[in-house]
Simulated scan of single mutants.
Amino acid sequence: MSLRRALLAVPALALAASACAPVDDEPTATVTDPASEPSEGLPSEEFVDPCSPEGAPLVTSGTLTIGTDSPAYEPWFVDDDPTNGEGFESAVAYAVAEQLGFSADQVTWVTVPFNTSYKPGEKAFDFDINQISITPARAEVVDFSEGYYSAAQAVVALEGTAGAEATSLADLQGLRLGAQTGTTSLTAIRDVIQPEADPLVFEDTNIAKQALKNDQVDAILADLPTAFYISAVEIGGSTIVGQFQVEGDAAEEFGMLFEKGSALVPCVDDAITALEADGTLADIEQQWLSDVVDVPTLR
């Protein structure tokens, strides 16, 4: 073979060899299980309990803000000082706070007038505790916790007056009756007793007590523990005529009040359930409200 013919044969052999080599039609993709690979750009976060001081939806971060009225009456509070942990509602509030993980110095109190607490709108507190009865009308614009106390209604009158002589609900119908505005005591007068004359309505319990002393009313109504304190401590010569339970919308069950839609409600519900289960709530009631049981029942 001539040199020229040999050189011409080399490219042809190379072409034939390349034609026989395997060729990938598409590049092969590597499939990896995402669960087996660390996430890039997504740092892992430790779980934070949404009911804890670190995770709860609070008005002020890290602080449980509780509202109540001023003055704060006994036996619910002692010495008009919600911060001392004394009195039924102060003790309950601090027990709930502790159950949620708050120390006493992580609790702060704000003054909230009773009549504004259950109005719609944004709240300056995480919850309010102030003998606020759970009612359907209020629950339309605010949220409530589970009830932490059920109270009967009671009638207070001055000894030796027509009010003190009543022995039944019917006996009260012809009397001048009064109660604080916005309370279930006022509802009980209108819906249960149904007096012949419209009840007198007072801005707060202090004014109602003064009206009783001034003979502007024959009797005033309040929840039983409050009535007991009025009679035993605040108004000399007064007596608790009797008590009665109210059914339906006027039933007296106290709940902690929240801004509508508050995510803190289930946390407080769980705390109340735990305090009921371990006997703490009963112990607090026994300590602060044990004297209210021996009162005649009006029927």
Rank of each mutant, 00 (worst) to 15 (best):
A95F: 00
Y73N: 08
F77R: 11
T30W: 09
W109M: 11
F77C: 10
L100V: 01
P22Y: 01
V92E: 04
P27F: 06
D80L: 07
D33Y: 12
L100C: 03
G87E: 03
D69Q: 15
L100F: 03
E54A: 14
Q99W: 00
A29V: 14
E45M: 13
E45R: 15
V92L: 07
S70C: 05
Y94R: 09
W76D: 09
D81H: 07
G101Q: 11
A104G: 06
T28E: 08
S39R: 12
D49M: 03
G41N: 09
E26N: 13
D25N: 10
S44L: 09
S61T: 12
E26H: 12
V59Q: 06
D81N: 15
V92W: 01
P53T: 00
T83S: 15
V110R: 03
D80Y: 04
C51P: 11
G101L: 08
E26F: 11
L42T: 15
E86T: 09
F47Q: 12
E89C: 08
P75S: 07
A35F: 04
V112T: 09
V110D: 04
A104S: 15
C20A: 14
P27T: 07
P75D: 11
S61R: 14
E98S: 08
P34L: 13
S36K: 06
G101K: 13
Q99T: 12
S103T: 11
